Computed example of a mutant assay.
Amino acid sequence: MSQQTADIIVIGGGIAGISAAAEMAKSAKVLVLEAEAQPGYHSTGRSAAIYIRNYGNAVLRAINALSEPTLAQPGGISDHSLLSPRGELLIASEDEMPSLEAYAAGATGLERMTGAEAAKMVPILRPEPIAAAIYESSAQSIDVDRMLQDYVKLLKARGGTIIAKARAQKIARQGGAWQIEASGTLYTAPIVVNAAGAWADAVAALAGVAAMGLQPMRRSAALLNLGPEHDVESWPLFGTTAETWYAKPDAGKLMVSPADEDPVDPHDAWPDDMVLAEGLHRYEQAVTVPVTRVEHSWAGLRTFAPDRTPVVGFAPDADGFFWLAGQGGYGVQTAPALSQTAAALIEGRAPKLAQPALDALTPGRFFSN
């Protein structure tokens, strides 16, 4: 069996693993093992591609804010901004007002609107059922493909290596180093970073490390063509504060998601026809244009820890095993901040993220005394 050694091995070539590897490659020899034929095949390649500062719990909002400067001015990663103007409009019926108030609590930069004002911004919305709306002008589209490819280029420029079709089959700690068997090669490093997304708990099990209770959730989407009479590119992302559906302009068409969160096992996800149909029906009830044909549909996995906060830090039960998982639906927009945080923790530097947020991310929070 051939062998390769490194200072750090990252398992998982999604945006989380690739961006962290690129950050760590500044001062270490880094290998990325990706099970698929190319990086970003699963959740990264099926992202809604949106930056929303107020999306998620308080910890995630702090991470989002820390990521924004890098996304806006990614010097050293990309030659120009990874963001472009979009905006986010969330509507609420009378019954959904508690979810609107919960979203607005602790949020910044929101503008309240009436149903009529919301329908003026997105002309296909029915204003009558809308009790209130909130608009976040700072929400922006993310060029996810360019972001991933630019991090790949940065990683390689710093001497890092990505090995595709290298699914970990055995992981063991011997002589102060981790040994990983993948596709007929033995990879060895003192530190392994578990950035395997939906498969992160399975990777931990291979290594004999306690699981975090991560749960992959399926999220479906469909692409609709509303025709030339609708200038969808001028619209913001729009949906309900209760997350019963959302829609986002996509190259002149409209991507609509049922905002489903169905627990599933890790797999190459595909949409459930009934779930998609029910979600499109909810969307139809809010707009004036019926769904006549779905051009394309797909699904991805969003993997959450039990408290819906990412898991970032060294495992308390295994030397040199670092968790970078559980990003849920926030993986792309949190990647700059979490990759910088992971690199700092591994190198023994103080991260930019405030201590309360770091404490909320640590894997040790799931361990009792």
Rank of each mutant, 00 (worst) to 15 (best):
L33E: 06
L214S: 07
G364D: 13
S81P: 06
S339V: 10
V193L: 11
A20I: 03
E136V: 00
L155H: 08
A28E: 07
E261A: 15
G17I: 13
A168K: 00
I142R: 02
I63N: 04
A139P: 01
V289I: 12
A222W: 09
P351D: 01
D268V: 14
A277C: 03
L224A: 06
A198Y: 05
P363M: 06
Y103T: 05
A25G: 09
D201P: 03
N225I: 05
A58C: 03
D307E: 07
D272C: 01
G14C: 13
A251Q: 06
I18V: 15
T161L: 15
K29D: 15
P98A: 06
Y51M: 12
G300T: 04
E101S: 10
R365D: 01
D260A: 05
L83N: 02
A222C: 11
V30C: 06
A337K: 03
V192S: 09
R282T: 11
K153L: 14
D260F: 03
Q355F: 12
A360Q: 01
D79L: 15
P363E: 08
R126P: 02
A172D: 12
Q169I: 02
N64E: 01
A315E: 10
A48H: 04
D143G: 12
S234F: 02
G17K: 05
E94C: 09
A28P: 02
A189K: 01
I63K: 04
I142N: 00
L155N: 03
P69K: 00
